[in-house]
Amino acid sequence: MHDTSSEGAPSHAGPGTILVPARVVEGRGAVTMLRVVAALAALQTVVQGLLAGMLLGGDVDSIDPHGFNAYVFELLVFLQVVAAVLLWRRNRWLTWPLKATIALLVLAFTQTLLGLEGSLAAHVALGVGLCAMETALVLRAFALRVNPAG
């Protein structure tokens, strides 16, 4: 288990568990942008799931909102990449946000293509995966420790 809430000497949480200290990141604005946009994108995946469920349940009128929201999700993921680049420029050692957001963007485009092609099984499975990945990104983004001075 890793301690992401402190910096300094490793602390002990119990027998045999050593918590490794987290590094403090610079760039409060970039972290805030990443957190906000990732939270909105995660919420968007839930909306997409609801619209997909309506569509699969026979509500054909939900296809247009589902398609529109797909493009909104792609825009939000693109903004996540921008935030991750800004964060990486201040913290060259911090690469996971950039790698994760680029992977999400590629998968979001793939998801849209699968939906347009009518590959229902792959489209639904990837949609569930995107929801999980986006949720994980939000949790990790909110676990970042930001330097109070920067």
Rank of each mutant, 00 (worst) to 15 (best):
A22K: 00
V46I: 10
V146P: 06
A42T: 00
V77K: 00
Q48D: 00
L56Y: 15
G27C: 06
G49Q: 07
H12G: 04
L120A: 04
E26I: 00
Q48S: 04
G49S: 08
T101K: 00
P148Q: 07
P10K: 11
V46P: 01
V82D: 08
V24T: 11
V81I: 15
R28K: 12
G67E: 14
A121T: 11
L40F: 13
V31N: 07
G118K: 13
T135E: 13
A122S: 10
L51N: 05
M133V: 09
A13N: 05
N147I: 14
E134H: 08
Q111N: 08
D3Q: 12
I102L: 10
A121Y: 07
L139F: 15
R140D: 11
A41T: 09
A108H: 02
M1G: 13
V146I: 14
L114K: 13
V106W: 02
R140H: 09
T110Q: 10
S62L: 05
P15T: 12
R89E: 13
V36T: 06
L139K: 15
T112S: 15
V37A: 03
M133F: 12
M133D: 10
P97L: 08
G27Q: 03
L116R: 15
V24N: 03
D61N: 07
A9V: 12
D64E: 07
G53N: 08
A132G: 11
